[in-house]
Design a protein around this nucleic acid. Structure first.
Lengths: 217, 217
DNA sequence: CTCGTAGGCGTACGGCGTACTCCTACGAAT
DNA sequence: ATTCGTAGGAGTACGCCGTACGCCTACGAG
């Protein structure tokens, strides 16, 4: 065996993350990351075959900061879920420019798999299983992904809501009125409020039990 | 006033949508759209100042296909919401490549504003108002955005789930077991299942009423 | 009739991802 | 100590992209 590699994937990823934090998503180019690492542009391709692979490394680095161990503290399983979700949210929000990347590379992250495993564990303790548990995890993921993007595209207490408040009230009576409330809702409150709705829905027994639901194989 | 324009924004948008459907998001370039319209590349810039503006036109065209009138049929308000949400889902799914664009240009679409207005109307009839109504709409939007993306990045009955089913069961016991159920869940079922959770949560009275909630101004 | 704007074409620039080539430096196996 | 395979690194080049800019033509309202 000859000469070992002199850069770990982690070093690569954190160089890219530095660029991303500094210059935003549009600034994340192979050339910029190479410069950050003080190597030639093409040198990057020794470690990575595509730009997409570099992006995946960054996403994994960010999700790697999420503690995947289920919290032992709260008795209420909904509080434990809240904590798990909050961990993802804070990890992503420390680096807003990774939001779009985290959506498209979510499925390649083993850290997020471990997170999902823990969440499923909590859901299992809560008495969910089979089909309901699968739908619950998927629903949670959908909400988290959507809510994080919404927050970064324009939180409720932001310019978009202000624009809506200025719409013609005769054409948009509910929207304009709602916008007045929405301006007072901070990002965390907004996120938790939606999560609460979802958790309340999880708690309830299913509206109707489908006897034809498939059994595990 | 001299000479009127010879192309409507709608013609522009549908040319772009044709390209998008045929060549995917990466194929949606100014050059390709111009060729589709049989004009020179730079001719496009007579109608549009950026590529982003063209993208917004496409998104508005797609959302323009969503019927914004609240459905009169079902007595249960949740069924009416389901119909409204389903309309968005089907409109977007007819053009899968528009999914990423619809997320980033969502806020510029007046069609989506009208849709939101109608949804707020239904929520109002359901007895929600003020802060709760704002959070409900935002929660619904978050879920819809996240779920649509999840579906197009890899539905439950897809390759991702199959990969998860093949993970080491000792490290991911819940995930591997859940994946076996998840393979049987079709996209529509998955989407509706998550929506049901949310709607169930909306129905319930709030877990605790916050007396310090801000009043409307 | 005329003049301002739309229509249209072509060229050019800078930046992107990345394929390819060439040379050097190391370090484990011999 | 020598050898040899791979990592490191630089540089060049290609084909895309968005788009700034200039020039000429055609039309239609005043």
């Amino acid at each position: 065996m000859p000469r070992p590699r002199s850069l770990t994937p982690d070093q690569l990823a954190s160089a890219a993350l530095t660029v991303l934090d500094r210059d935003g998503l549009a600034g994340l180019t192979m050339r910029a990351v190479a410069t950050q690492l003080r190597m030639s542009t093409m040198g990057l391709y020794r470690y990575v075959t595509h730009r997409a692979e570099l992006e995946a490394l960054v996403v994994e680095l960010v999700f790697g900061g999420v503690d995947p161990t289920p919290p032992a503290g709260p008795a209420d399983w909904r509080d434990r879920i809240r904590i798990m979700v909050e961990r993802v949210r804070t990890a992503v929000e420390a680096h807003p420019a990774v939001v779009p990347l985290s959506v498209s590379h979510r499925h390649t992250s083993v850290s997020l798999l471990r997170w999902s495993e823990a969440v499923l564990g909590i859901l299992t303790e809560a008495g969910l299983d089979g089909r309901r548990r699968a739908l619950a995890l998927r629903g949670l993921l959908s909400y988290v992904i959507g809510a994080i993007q919404l927050e970064h595209l324009g939180a409720l207490a932001g310019a978009g809501t202000r624009a809506i408040a200025g719409l013609p009230p005769d054409e948009f009576p509910h929207l304009t009125e709602t916008a007045r409330y929405a301006r007072r809702i901070g990002p965390a409150e907004e996120f938790d409020g939606g999560l609460d709705i979802l958790l309340r829905g999880l708690l309830d027994p299913p509206a109707q039990v489908d006897p034809s639901a498939p059994a595990p194989e």
